[in-house]
């Protein structure tokens, strides 16, 4: 009973978001949804691809260059992460129920947050700072494997989202 009440309460909020002017504009505009989709794809590709390349370097591929200069690419990674968040928020705003009522959406978010936390820890403590070590340590390599796996799983969860959605829009 409590669960049903919670569900009805969340449906109410989702319906309210769905009926905002911004949400309607995202859905009905000729370009907004597709622009957000394209920007989200590019930024996620840049984020996952760059992080994967640095993880691969951490795992010993592309040696013998020192690790610290790779930190130069950190702002690009941060930028891609923020663009992904904003474009993802626009996509969710357009069809809030489609995302929020799909458990995979939360799994994707959790995986992505875990991947970013690990990547950040790897960069901060792992030596991608000026004066850091030249060769990656076993701990760094484990972090790199974790980051790589989580990123790939987040990407797979994201791709399966569109194919597993049960609800597109809520009725009044």
């Amino acid at each position: 009973m409590r669960r049903l009440r919670l569900n009805l309460c969340s449906m109410h909020w989702l319906y309210a978001i769905q009926e905002t002017g911004f949400s309607i504009w995202v859905r009905e505009s000729d370009w907004a949804l597709f622009a957000a989709l394209i920007v989200h794809t590019l930024s996620m590709g840049l984020l996952l691809g760059t992080a994967a390349a640095i993880d691969l370097r951490m795992l010993g591929f592309g040696a013998p260059a020192p690790l610290p200069p790779l930190a130069i690419f950190a702002p690009m990674l941060h930028g891609a992460a923020w663009v992904s968040v904003v474009s993802g928020a626009v996509l969710v705003a357009g069809y809030p129920a489609k995302a929020a009522l799909n458990p995979l959406f939360y799994i994707k978010l959790a995986l992505l947050i875990a991947a970013l936390v690990i990547t950040r820890a790897l960069w901060q403590r792992g030596g991608l700072t000026p004066g850091g070590p030249i060769v990656s340590s076993p701990v760094q390599r484990r972090f790199a494997i974790g980051s790589l796996l989580l990123m790939v799983l987040a990407l797979i969860a994201g791709k399966f989202l569109a194919h597993t959605a049960q609800v597109l829009l809520l009725l009044p």
């Binding site: 794809t41 996620m44 590709g45 840049l46 996952l48 691809g49 760059t50 992080a51 994967a52 390349a53 691969l56 690419f73 790939v152 990407l155 797979i156 791709k159």
Partner: peptide, 13 residues
């Protein structure tokens, strides 16, 4: 998409 992202991350970098 894993392929494309890796391509972007390696060749793009």
């Amino acid at each position: 998409f894993i392929g494309l992202a890796t391509l972007l991350g390696t060749v793009g970098l």
